[in-house]
Simulated assay, not measured.
Amino acid sequence: MLACLPPKARASESLHHVRLVYFWPVQGFLLIPIVVAQEQGIYRRYGLDVSIVLPPDAQTTARMLATEQAEIGMEARTDVVFAAEVSLPLVSIANYDQHNSWCVVGRPGEPIDLRTLEGKKIGIFIDSWTAVMMHLLFEKSGVKDAENVQQIITQFEDLPLLLSGRLDLATNAASFAIAASIAQDGQMPSLACPNVTGVPDIPIWSFTATPHWLKLHGGDAKAWLAATREGLLWAMSHPTEAAALFSKIYPEVDSPLYDKAGWAAAVPYFGNGDTALSQTSQSWSELASEMHRIGLISKVRPLATYYTNDFLPR
């Protein structure tokens, strides 16, 4: 029967299918390395057929992995620490970025004074990274009572509300803030990033999986990371072409200008050929220790609970 199948069908049968579940319910330009590896046949070269799955909200990626709705996740590293707190089996197999791009955002040309946050309306998202960073931001900026700051939850994007004057400030990863501001009015927003806010300069996102899947499919995890690293390095070296490819595949999501500006702003946060996807005990220890210090988790678990480097390309 196999001999009767066309060559492409037989080749597809031999590929191992891996589903990546994103951290956001809409495709975004941070998926560019995965799209590059898909479209350039890099995953197929490593024996994989990779698809992208979208969660219903920003808090479901870990649960989708636990219930076998996907094999690999892309999510905030705070999700991994919170998962360990409730004994949800989840481990990081690579960092996506190498620096913290989470910033307080202001309108173009308007300086940000973190000493005057009380009484302000600030746009936030409901993801776990934002929740932790806001705790730290209030602490570092001297906010005595979080109730004195109006935190306005936004569904998908807070920059339009900021630029229209309906918010005093917003919070976002720098690349998304820059993309939205440039796409809307061609100007750079004001940004207060970790060097100003005082929050830790540590990676935001991880690629994650369950220990059970890794035990059974460690080879697929290694192949996926090796192929994804190739896609990431190519997209970093060819940012304009990579963004255009993403815009072509997902034309209904954002404008080509948005994707181009956002990806160009994201690239500096990924490290280089030596550090891409790497993760260290220091950054995981710092994240978990800060979360424990401000009372969000009961204790810091052994770091092997949070991450492993066993599947990274050597």
Rank of each mutant, 00 (worst) to 15 (best):
T275E: 03
K222L: 06
H217Y: 12
P256A: 08
H212E: 14
P239H: 11
P251R: 12
F246P: 00
R229Q: 13
G273N: 05
G262I: 08
D254Y: 15
A221M: 05
A266R: 04
P268W: 04
S247W: 04
A243W: 06
V267G: 00
W213F: 13
G262N: 09
A266N: 12
R229E: 12
W224N: 00
A266F: 15
N272R: 05
H212P: 00
L225E: 09
P239R: 11
W224H: 10
S255R: 11
D259S: 14
T228R: 05
F270V: 02
R229V: 08
H217T: 08
H217I: 04
W213H: 05
K248C: 06
W263V: 03
V267Q: 00
A261F: 07
L233I: 12
W234P: 05
Y250Q: 00
L245K: 10
L225P: 02
E230S: 07
N272D: 15
F246H: 10
S255Q: 10
A244S: 14
K248D: 14
A243Y: 03
A264Y: 01
L225C: 09
D254K: 15
A242D: 08
P268L: 07
E241Q: 14
G218H: 11
N272V: 04
S255M: 07
A266C: 07
W224F: 15
Y269Q: 03
H217Q: 13
H212F: 13
G273F: 09
